[in-house]
Simulated assay, not measured.
Amino acid sequence: MSTDVVGAEAPQVKGRFLGILICWLLGNGSLFAWNSMLTIEDYYVHLFPDYHPTRILTLAYQPFAFGITLIMTYYEAKMNTRRRNLAGFSLFFLGSFALIILDIATKGRGGLGVFVGVCIISAIFGIADANCQGALVGDLSLMCPEFVQSFMAGLAASGVLTSALRLITKAAFESSKDGLRIGAILFFSITCLFELLCLLLYTFVFAKLPIVKYYRSKAASEGSKTVASDLAAAGIISDQQAQIEEDPQKYKRLTTKELLMENIDYAFDIYLIYVLTLSIFPGFLSEDTGEHSLGSW
Rank of each mutant, 00 (worst) to 15 (best):
L99G: 01
L99H: 12
I100P: 01
I100N: 01
I100Q: 04
D103K: 04
D103M: 07
I104V: 07
I104G: 01
I104Q: 08
A105F: 09
A105S: 12
A105N: 02
T106H: 14
K107T: 10
G108F: 13
G108S: 08
G108E: 08
R109F: 09
R109N: 13
G110L: 06
G111Q: 11
G111N: 08
L112P: 00
G113F: 12
G113T: 10
V114Q: 07
F115A: 03
F115K: 06
V116G: 01
G117T: 10
G117Y: 12
V118T: 09
V118S: 03
C119I: 05
C119G: 07
I120H: 05
I121F: 06
S122W: 07
S122F: 11
A123I: 07
A123E: 04
A123G: 13
F125I: 07
F125P: 02
G126D: 05
I127L: 11
A128N: 01
A128V: 12
D129H: 15
D129M: 06
D129K: 02
D129C: 14
A130N: 04
N131F: 15
N131E: 05
N131I: 02
C132W: 03
C132Y: 02
Q133A: 13
A135L: 09
A135H: 10
L136K: 01
G138L: 13
D139W: 15
S141G: 10
S141L: 00
S141I: 01
L142M: 15
L142C: 05
L142P: 03
C144V: 05
C144D: 14
P145C: 09
E146R: 10
E146Y: 13
E146T: 08
V148T: 09
V148D: 00
V148A: 07
Q149R: 14
Q149M: 11
Q149F: 12
S150A: 15
S150V: 07
F151V: 04
M152W: 00
M152T: 05
A153V: 13
A153K: 08
A153T: 11
A153N: 11
A153I: 11
G154M: 08
G154F: 11
L155R: 02
L155I: 06
A156Q: 06
A156M: 09
A156S: 10
A156K: 06
A157R: 02
S158L: 03
V160F: 15
V160M: 11
V160E: 02
L161A: 10
T162V: 14
T162Y: 10
S163E: 03
S163D: 09
L165S: 12
R166A: 01
R166K: 09
L167R: 05
I168K: 02
I168T: 06
I168Q: 01
T169G: 04
K170F: 12
A171F: 12
A172N: 10
A172T: 12
S175Q: 14
S175N: 15
S176H: 13
S176P: 02
K177M: 13
K177A: 15
D178R: 02
D178N: 14
G179A: 03
G179D: 00
L180K: 05
R181N: 06
I182V: 15
G183P: 06
A184H: 07
I185S: 02
L186T: 09
F187V: 03
F187L: 08
F188Y: 14
F188V: 14
S189T: 14
T191V: 12
T191L: 02
L193D: 06
F194H: 04
F194Q: 00
E195P: 00
E195K: 00
L196R: 08
L196K: 05
L197C: 08
L197K: 03
C198W: 01
L201M: 04
T203E: 08
F204N: 08
